[in-house]
């Protein structure tokens, strides 16, 4: 692992043209990732393949967080995502850096009397290895979120062994709940796999397999979803940049599903009827196992016309708990 200097630690997340803004700020304390997930943009961007931790200049971070917290806003609530530019718990060192960030943020949140969520997003089970985890208090709430995907997709498109199995990710979520943290689930990216054939009927058949896999996954999480400390559930279908799409096509990757279109934000996604069908089926299933969860359900990286087609009200992450 290497370290580098960083010019800015906190940035307002740029979702892309037309994409619904969930109101996140990104804490950029690290970049690159050696988990090697085939669908991840990091694998195809010009960043070194080895994980990089930026030198955390405490004063500079404190200055940036102070500027953010002192912004004139009606609601003094912030949602900071520390798992966007790298897996939050990629290594224990990553977590130690985050621990410092939480401490500084706590001090400033107290000073400015703001409420702040800090999301730690991971595909690992490293939470079990961490000795001291920050506790939630009136100013800071840690939201431990796990990216969940059916085990067949983990084995096909993530490096099984480097990332945790689905079962272990669910156990890690339960462990986080036992520590008093808020937890969240990200079904992201939802990948159309396996593809059993390319005719209209076969696509519908593949979709039923996909939906059954996700229903089964959600059913395994029903205790977590019904917990009072459950923060949010986000659904998001696969997105590929133009560059990724080209590379994956040449590699004959099964991520290159034929029915994908270039969307207004410049990313390839499954066609609109496919996305809407997947989301609405999953939303209906979620309502059946946890009716109150609808208020904590989001579409991540989607356009407002897709939210509307799914009968879902647009929400901000900071207002969910």
């Amino acid at each position: 692992m290497t370290t580098q200097k960083k010019t800015s630690y906190i940035v307002k997340y740029n979702y892309g043209r037309g994409v619904v803004d969930l109101g996140e700020y990104v804490i950029s304390f690290a970049t690159s990732c050696d988990l090697g997930c085939e669908y991840c943009y990091l694998k195809y961007s010009k960043v070194p393949k080895k994980p990089i931790l930026y030198d955390l200049l405490r004063e500079k971070f404190a200055e940036e967080i102070e500027i953010l917290f002192s912004l004139p806003m009606e609601e003094k609530i912030f949602y900071l995502n520390a798992g966007e530019t790298a897996d939050s718990l990629l290594t224990i060192t990553h977590f130690e850096e985050l621990h410092k960030i939480v401490e500084i943020t706590y001090g400033k949140a107290k000073k400015y009397n703001v409420r702040c969520f800090i999301e730690l997003r991971t595909k690992t089970e490293n939470i079990f290895k961490i000795k001291k985890i920050p506790t939630n208090n009136e100013f800071i709430k840690i939201v431990y979120t796990a990216t969940l995907t059916p085990q067949n997709i983990i084995e096909k498109f993530e490096k099984a062994g480097r990332v945790a199995s689905l079962q272990r990710r669910i156990e890690a979520l339960k462990y986080a709940l036992s520590l008093g943290l808020l937890v969240g689930i990200r079904l992201e990216p939802i990948i159309f796999y396996p593809v059993t054939g390319l005719s209209y009927k076969e696509i519908l058949n593949s979709m039923q397999i996909l939906l059954n896999n996700y229903r089964s996954l959600l059913f395994s999480c029903r205790d977590i979803l019904n917990s009072k400390n459950f923060h949010s559930l986000a659904l998001s279908s696969l997105r590929l940049t133009k560059k990724q799409y080209k590379i994956l096509k040449n590699k004959r990757s099964e991520l290159c599903f034929p029915e994908m279109f270039l969307c207004p934000d410049g990313k390839y996604r499954y066609s609109r009827p496919i996305r809407v069908k997947i989301y609405t089926e999953l939303i209906n299933y979620i309502k059946s196992i946890s009716p109150q969860l609808i208020s904590k359900l989001l579409l991540s990286f989607e356009f407002d016309y897709i939210w509307r087609a799914c009968n879902l009200e647009v929400k901000k992450l900071k207002n969910l708990s």
Partner: peptide
């Protein structure tokens, strides 16, 4: 072949308004 789900929809949309974006986005 390429768009087994959307192609029929695209054709229907074309009939209604040729200027509508045919990617359905």
């Amino acid at each position: 072949l390429r768009y087994p789900i959307s192609w029929k929809k695209i054709k229907e949309l074309k009939k209604m308004d040729k200027s509508a974006p045919l990617d359905l986005e």
